[in-house]
Write a protein that binds this DNA or RNA. Structure first.
Length: 508
RNA sequence: GUCUCGUUAGCUCAGCAGGUAGAGCAAUUCACUUUUAAUGAAUGGGCCCUAGGUUCGAAUCCUAGACGGGACACCA
């Protein structure tokens, strides 16, 4: 039974005593008191008064919050109570509370409980603004004790599994999530101001598409068919462009059935936006604008620390072509970059395992991942991708082997991916077929499926469009100097804990 | 997926030449009416992650597994 622990039993007893004494341990109708920060600010003037007169008994405050510390000294006690604005000290004693109340609740109110304290402000001998209580009400009795007050909760596993407890014990982590919320809100506002329309497209797809990734499979009982949790909203958003919505975006979750690590969670948040009558060059500009907008509204300096690195977010960002980056950043000789056999030999020479049947484009991708990606620290747009690895991107009108595509890298990580969209239905059909063949030939289960309905949509004519996806989780990591995606996700995915024999039995 | 480190009281951690399981905080009881991780005294609290193995004897050594952290690989 989950409440078997002796400390919990001890607290349940106290809850029962409260009830027996006619005190509801879970009363309703409690109004939130003055925020702690406001209380401290309003009473700061007390410090300026004469010694012995540092109080104002005429002004009664109500404070609500969770008890974090209690120091009982016989007939008087100090406690610290915490609300979302911070911590404030309260003082209560036997003679200033209603008759008999102090002795009744002295042992029944404890660390972890939520309380409401009413009284006046004064300054203690040690100079702390404190509420002198005339009444003390239990708002919510906590029956589980909080972790140790000095060291707090440090166990990562417990922090992720019991995020609420993490937030109580490590309130500073809330800053990351406030920042995350602001970033998402600003991104939304930015695109709305640019007259983009926010839309919601299906998360359950009949055919997983829009990215190279393994999907989660679920089942629709009524129809008797499997559905895939979306790996990207891309193909639906482009159907909307065909339908005449000329600027759309969606901010929401995608699901990929792959490994989990410090930069991957099975569900993650992306914004994807599609913009008719624009090209990937316009995307580069609007992405830079978006970063400038975020930095301005978040009031961030242009140079941010990221671990040992310092990242300069000053726009414009560097722009380098894919093949140029291979030589200038990756140090791969130009003749190797452009020759399939030499590229293959070069990769093998560097002990990188590659399939001998891979095309030049795929080999270049291997070279890029190996020699370039993690060297791109400051924001850098890598443009003009090999067409082979860009099955949804438009072919360059000048060079047929090049896709009008870019990826934005920051701190060695891909943050955004955008391109001029392929809108030739016949070309798209052939590229899907190529992907299907790759899937069959190499067993690459991340290669794309044929989506004939999407090709059909294109056949009605999609305006020349540019589209981009930005990984929100990673962006938040960059801007908050966090190195684990779990620290920017409120409830990161965790493996189930192995149930103990005891809990299995009692939960029956 | 690979490597590596970890898992002992509610929390934070000691303990490991193999010999009856420890501390601090928290809890219980007592004292204490301006404390700051309050203080002083006493008491209770453990499937030492799980399953095997070695051994007279395992928290400690070995094997396998579970779950986490970190690094690498793949991906966003």
């Amino acid at each position: 039974m989950i409440f078997a622990n002796q400390y919990i039993q001890e607290r349940i007893k106290k809850r029962d005593i409260l009830k027996a004494e006619g005190i509801n341990p879970y009363p309703n109708q409690i109004s939130k008191g003055t925020p702690s920060a406001q209380f401290l600010e309003e009473c700061a003037y007390l410090h300026t008064l004469e010694i012995g007169e540092k109080s104002n008994k005429d002004k009664i405050y109500s404070l609500t919050g969770r008890i974090r510390f209690i120091r009982i000294m016989g007939k008087a006690a100090f406690a610290k109570i915490e609300d979302s604005a911070g911590t404030v000290q309260i003082y209560y004693n036997r003679d200033d509370l209603p008759e008999g109340y102090y002795n009744l609740i002295k042992k029944l109110i404890e660390v972890g409980d939520l309380i409401e304290a009413k009284g006046f402000a004064f300054v203690t001998q040690t100079g702390e603004i404190t509420l002198h209580c005339a009444s003390l009400t239990i708002v919510t009795k906590a029956i589980s004790p909080l972790p140790e007050k000095f060291h707090g909760l440090t166990d990562h596993e417990l922090r992720y599994r019991q995020r609420y407890l993490d937030m109580i014990m490590n309130p500073q982590i809330k800053e990351n999530f406030v920042m995350r919320s602001k970033i998402v809100s600003l991104i939304r506002r930015f695109f709305e101001e640019k007259s983009f329309l926010e839309v919601e497209t299906p998360m359950m797809h009949p055919i997983p598409g829009g990215a190279n990734a393994k999907p989660f499979v679920t089942h629709h009982n009524a129809l008797g068919i499997d559905r895939y949790l979306r790996i990207a909203p891309e193909l639906y958003l482009k159907r909307l462009i065909v339908g005449g919505m000329e600027a759309v975006f969606e901010i929401n979750r995608n699901f990929r059935n792959e490994g989990m690590d410090h930069t991957h969670n099975p569900e993650f948040t992306m914004i994807e936006f599609y913009w008719a009558y624009h090209t990937y060059r316009d995307l580069i500009k609007i992405t830079e604008e978006l970063f400038a907008y975020l930095f301005a509204h978040l009031d961030l300096p242009s140079k941010l620390p990221y671990g040992d690195l310092e990242i300069d977010f000053k726009t414009p960002f560097a722009v380098i072509s894919y093949t140029e980056a291979l030589t200038t950043v990756g140090g791969v000789p130009a003749e190797i970059v452009s020759d399939r056999e030499k590229a293959l030999a070069y990769l093998r020479h560097h002990h990188i395992k590659v399939d001998a049947n891979l095309s030049l484009g795929y080999l270049q991708a291997e070279l890029f991942d190996e020699f370039v990606e993690n060297r791109l620290v400051n924001p850098t747009f890598i443009i003009d991708f090999p067409i082979d690895i860009s099955p949804l991107a438009r072919r360059s009108d000048e060079q047929s082997e090049i896709a009008e595509r870019f990826e934005l890298f920051i701190a060695g990580k891909e943050i955004a991916n955008g391109f001029s969209e392929l809108n030739d239905p016949i070309d798209q059909y052939e590229r899907f077929k190529g992907q299907v063949q790759t899937k069959a030939a190499t067993g690459d289960d991340e290669a794309m499926h044929m989506d004939t309905d999407y090709v059909k949509a294109l056949s009605y004519g999609m305006a020349p469009t540019a589209g981009e996806g930005i990984g929100i989780d990673r962006l938040v990591m960059m801007l908050t100097n966090q190195h684990s995606i779990r620290d920017v996700l409120l409830f990161p995915a965790m493996k189930p804990e192995m149930p103990t024999a005891e809990s299995e039995e009692s939960e029956q």
